[in-house]
Amino acid sequence: MRGSIRHRPLTWFFSLTFLLSWTAWVPYALSENGLGLWHFTFPGGAGGSQLLGVLPGAYLGPITSALLVTGITEGRAGLRAWRSRMTKFRVNWRWYAVVLVAVPAALTLAVVALGDRAPQMPSAMILAAFLPGLLLQMITTGLAEEPGWREFAMPRLQDRFGPLAATVIVGPLWGLWHLPLFLTEWGGYPDVTGTAVLKFVVTAIAFSFVMTWVFNRSGGSMPLVMLLHCGVNNYFSIAAADMFPWLSRESASNASLLALLTAALILLATTRGRLGCPPAPHTDTLPARTA
């Protein structure tokens, strides 16, 4: 098995990620928070039950698989390098400012464009909770998902296939990884539709292009990539309902798709598909002289 993992690290990473997460999500999907086949309700209301039901599977999947495969294929040196990339906070402060401002601004514009209604000023309580909520999202969603999808899988695929093809591979897999959660309240069950699932996967693909660009342009700063991911989640978890009291689940989904798809298309056009990845070094060779 060790030889197989060393030979096909990406195949093992994706397989273990799906297997571990989907297995851990079975109780949540079967409970009263999902299909109702198991007569048990996860405590804590909608937020608490999702933390107790979703988070274990999220942690058991991408981050655990990445650590396991890295340890087997690269040993302690690989794990130390992995840790150094995960703690690469030292990037230009403008990157943090751009992410913190651009994410809520883009999502607000998207909601306004779709709903044709001006936003309300968020209350002082929402403003006070926004940054703590973002920090919580970084520890939960960001730390659970991005060390696997963006830190482990993306660079390896990008080295082999280039940034465009790598993102086309990671994006759909990342979106489909969430499939069992659509059988729970997390995904809107029992009112969820196939269209909603498809829209989520397309949004994940578009978001992946944006995150690839940020990852490459920041020199592989995982904290910045996690901040970008969690910024979208935090906006809809904390601020959106207060700014747009009329906002429905479907409207929020449409706004995410619009904002992220627009950003992805702009980046693809302006970078000509390179997404911030520097061109591969090459050397020109002169033909050998003949006598």
Rank of each mutant, 00 (worst) to 15 (best):
M1K: 09
S4T: 06
H7V: 01
H7N: 09
R8F: 06
P9M: 10
P9S: 09
W12L: 08
L16G: 15
L16V: 11
T17K: 04
T17C: 14
L20G: 00
W22G: 04
A24P: 01
A24K: 01
L35K: 07
H39R: 14
H39L: 09
H39M: 05
G44M: 01
G45F: 07
G45N: 09
Q50H: 06
Q50S: 12
L52F: 13
G53L: 05
P56Y: 12
G57T: 09
G61Q: 05
V69N: 10
I72Y: 10
T73V: 12
E74P: 09
A77G: 15
A81I: 03
W82S: 05
R83D: 03
R85L: 10
K88E: 02
R90H: 13
R90P: 03
R90S: 14
W93Y: 11
W95G: 03
Y96P: 10
A97W: 01
A97R: 00
A102N: 06
A106S: 15
A106V: 11
L107F: 09
T108L: 04
A110R: 01
V111N: 09
A113T: 10
L114G: 15
G115S: 09
A118Q: 12
A118E: 11
M121S: 07
A124T: 12
I126R: 11
I126D: 02
I126P: 04
G133D: 01
L134F: 06
L135Y: 00
M138F: 14
T141A: 11
L143Q: 06
E145L: 05
E146I: 15
P147D: 11
P147Q: 10
A153M: 14
M154L: 15
P155A: 07
P155L: 09
R160S: 15
G162K: 06
G162N: 06
T167I: 09
V168T: 13
L173H: 04
L173Y: 04
G175P: 06
G175F: 02
H178D: 00
L179R: 00
F182P: 01
F182K: 04
T184R: 01
W186S: 13
G187H: 13
G194D: 10
L198M: 13
K199G: 06
K199Q: 12
T203E: 09
A204G: 00
F207L: 10
V214C: 03
F215M: 10
N216R: 14
R217W: 04
G220I: 08
G220V: 08
G220E: 12
S221I: 02
M222Q: 14
M222Y: 07
L224W: 13
V225W: 01
V225A: 04
L227C: 03
L228W: 08
L228E: 05
H229P: 05
H229D: 04
N234S: 05
N234G: 04
N234A: 02
Y235E: 00
A240N: 03
F244Y: 12
P245D: 05
W246V: 00
L247E: 13
E250T: 13
S251D: 15
A255Y: 03
A255E: 02
S256R: 15
L257P: 01
L257Q: 08
A259F: 07
L260E: 15
A263L: 15
A264C: 07
L267I: 15
L268P: 11
A269V: 07
T270W: 12
T271L: 10
R272P: 04
R272I: 01
G273S: 11
C277K: 12
P278G: 09
P278E: 13
A280V: 08
A280E: 11
P281M: 08
H282T: 08
T283G: 02
D284S: 05
L286Q: 14
P287G: 07
